[in-house]
Design a protein around this nucleic acid. Structure first.
Lengths: 202, 202
DNA sequence: ATACTGACTGAACGTTCAGTCAGTATCCTG
DNA sequence: CAGGATACTGACTGAACGTTCAGTCAGTAT
């Protein structure tokens, strides 16, 4: 198997294949043998690189979170007005969804999957992003762009709105009858609702 | 059948025990033998009452949804002003959470669980509730209490806000560092944000 | 007293799966 | 080239699982 130059890191191949398989099916529905055959390798090799199936799963989830965080945090680091930055953040989130649907499915699954890194940890990690959003909102409150409120709760609310769209899209289970629709349009609706909700108003 | 104290219907005992076990653990982590021993019965009896494990799981989930719907729909059937009815609905939702935590955990798990009734069906069912909420919002739009908007999307947004609180509470994974806090208070925050978001405003 | 019912048992079966291991190929270094 | 380290194979194991089924027995109708 002398592939491109070096070994092309079987380890990464395993992670990629496992991620794709875990994304649809979850932990239990995917056997180690499945991963091996999908990657064109032996089961033994998986155990050469990873202690056990659990560790492999946790590694996949953790790396997905990392990639996810990188993209999201970047979008929040501009220095435009708070409202603009929030809109940009949501747009980045949506773009991430388009490009990494399997990754999103994996993360959403892992939230309520009793295996793998505890639900607590999955969410705690992504709370690094919640914190950033929270900071932006606090800035907006300080400048008077938003009404005075609990910025942490507001950040949580924003996540709730966006993640619900994600979940519906990614698990192919649109909330209610009305199927797909334009996700950008739905995101715009949620964004408007949110900004109006935290805006100053009589 | 005599629901009087005596035998208490083995079938219902199985459903209750299975529900509790599936709620923390999910489909795969619970074996039929686990359910049998927790219920103090034999594995064979489970197969006497249910075709297979899958069917048992689906029955448990479906009955949970049914109970859930009953409570939720009732709260929406009052004839007060739309805004009041929405507040009452959310309060009922919260009360339901307090009394049936395991049930909520089961439903939340089942949404992203590839087994059991397809995710699609779980959400579609509860879309009966979304529809009711939507109707209330449409009423509010008609009377001018709310601004003109897509009532379906708005209903979805309300669910997103409430369900996120639920999920965090029920899976013991508070979003972000700040732990528990008062859930009633959090619900109030979400409600205010939502009502402000759909309200008429300059 | 006899015949029958159906809820219920628990050992057994076939299958699946995570994890192991003895062995092979490939590469590096002296 | 020798020899050790690294990467990898795939047949194998032992346990756990869902499911089946021959059989038990309290209860009821005849």
């Amino acid at each position: 198997m002398a592939s491109d130059g070096a070994t092309a890191s079987a380890r990464e191949r395993i992670l990629a294949v496992a991620g794709a398989l875990f994304a649809d099916g979850g932990f239990d529905a995917v056997s180690v043998a499945d991963i091996a055959s999908a990657g064109g390798i032996s089961t033994g090799l998986i155990y050469y690189h990873f202690k056990d199936k659990q560790t492999l799963y946790e590694t996949v989830v953790r790396e997905s979170i990392h990639l996810f965080e990188g993209v999201a945090v970047e979008a929040l680091s501009a220095d435009s007005a708070p409202e603009v930055r929030l809109r940009e953040f949501i747009a980045a989130y949506m773009r991430l969804l388009e490009g990494h649907e399997a990754l999103m499915r994996l993360l959403i699954r892992s939230i309520s999957d009793p295996r793998g890194p505890a639900p607590r940890h999955v969410l705690m990690r992504s709370s690094a992003i919640v914190d950033r959003v929270q900071a932006v909102i606090e800035e907006g409150v300080a400048t008077g762009a938003f009404r005075s409120l609990d910025a942490h709760m507001a950040a949580t609310a924003l996540f709730a709105l966006i993640n619900t769209l994600m979940t519906a899209r990614v698990l192919d289970a649109p909330l209610g009858q009305r199927a797909g629709g334009d996700i950008e349009q739905q995101a715009a609706f949620m964004t408007d609702l949110f900004l109006k909700g935290i805006g100053t108003c009589s």
